[in-house]
């Protein structure tokens, strides 16, 4: 396991630098000058542009620019927004809110998804299974922002169960509705994944052995079927973090939550590309780290992964 962990950590290093370089390159070296874009149609005095370029190190070669950027990144300096606030400062204020939102969404999608998926898998072909499949397909095919609008309209405006916008402190209670919206797509994927995996494992030899040696149905299902079916679900949760982050940008935008996603949403709408880049770079780093963690967890759960070449 130690050997495997070391190898995976080493593999992650080029991915980390490659991904951050790619994002940096996309923003600062492609046509569409972010500095010129600051000024719109009326070009500023030529000296101003030069000065701003020097301030952001844009006059240096690309690789050097990137190294300065990544050096600052590791020291916690993520640049400043156009209003002059440090990005790291904005992020420190926004992160706890998004963390609460994501936790609520994760708990909901994991518990409800696994439960519905397990029942559907155990009753494959029955009406519960069929309706779970249809509902999951529907949830995947409706874009998150449409679902967000609908939930806000139905539960917020018409039924009045929840507030339609979240206050700046974002207490847990107000985050329930946005968390449900955020969790919906992943919930659907978890239902499908658990269902397929449970149905597969029900036919496995070890389940037949467990039944044959006289274990109760309840014990066979919880100890043997469910535990083995959760392995692919755990790996999915890592990949899913990416869609949760995209989803957070949309749900926090719709419900006006001042979290990481809401900040990115506003920055996109206002065209503040430096803020967008810094935030998304941090998101990508979190995504890479989470995937590493899940890979290690996967290897711990399934010994075949560790020993494979």
């Amino acid at each position: 396991m130690l050997w495997y962990t070391g190898r995976r950590v080493l593999q992650m290093i080029p991915v980390f630098f490659g991904a951050t370089f790619l994002i940096y390159f996309m923003v600062f070296s492609l046509p569409g000058d972010p500095i010129a874009a600051l000024y719109g149609d009326r070009p500023p005095a030529p000296g101003v542009i030069e000065q701003i370029r020097a301030q952001y190190n844009l006059d240096k070669p690309l690789l050097q620019q990137y190294l300065i950027y990544i050096g600052n990144f590791f020291q916690g300096d993520l640049g400043t927004t156009y209003s002059g606030r440090p990005v790291s400062d904005v992020m420190a204020g926004a992160f706890p809110i998004t963390f609460r939102l994501a936790m609520l969404a994760l708990v909901f999608e994991a518990f409800a998804g696994i439960l519905v998926g397990l029942v559907a898998g155990l009753r494959k072909g029955k009406w519960f299974d069929a309706s779970a499949l249809v509902v999951s397909l529907l949830l995947i095919s409706v874009p998150t922002f449409v679902l967000g609008f609908l939930f806000r309209l139905i539960f917020g405006v018409q039924l009045g169960w929840f507030r339609t916008t979240v206050s700046s402190e974002a207490p847990w209670g107000e985050l329930i509705l946005p968390a449900l919206v955020l969790a919906s797509v992943s919930f659907a994927y978890i239902v499908r994944l658990t269902r397929a995996s449970v149905a597969d494992n029900l036919n496995a030899d070890f389940v037949r052995t467990a039944t044959a040696k006289g274990l109760s149905r309840r014990r066979v299902v919880t100890v043997h079927v469910l535990r083995n079916s959760l392995v692919p679900v755990v790996t999915f949760l890592g990949v899913d973090l990416g869609s949760l982050m995209v989803g957070a940008i949309i749900t926090e935008g719709i419900f006006n939550i001042n979290g990481v996603g809401g900040t990115v949403y506003k920055a996109i709408v206002l065209g503040e590309s430096t803020t967008v880049v810094s935030f998304i770079a941090v998101m990508v780093v979190i995504f890479v780290l989470a995937n590493l963690l899940v890979d290690l967890l996967y290897a711990a759960l399934d010994p075949r992964i560790r020993y494979a070449k």
Partner: peptide, 16 residues
């Protein structure tokens, strides 16, 4: 390592 839509957001917000 870059989720599709996150990458697309970065690229689309700088492309004209």
């Amino acid at each position: 390592a870059i989720p599709t839509i996150l990458g697309a957001i970065v690229l689309m917000s700088v492309l004209p």
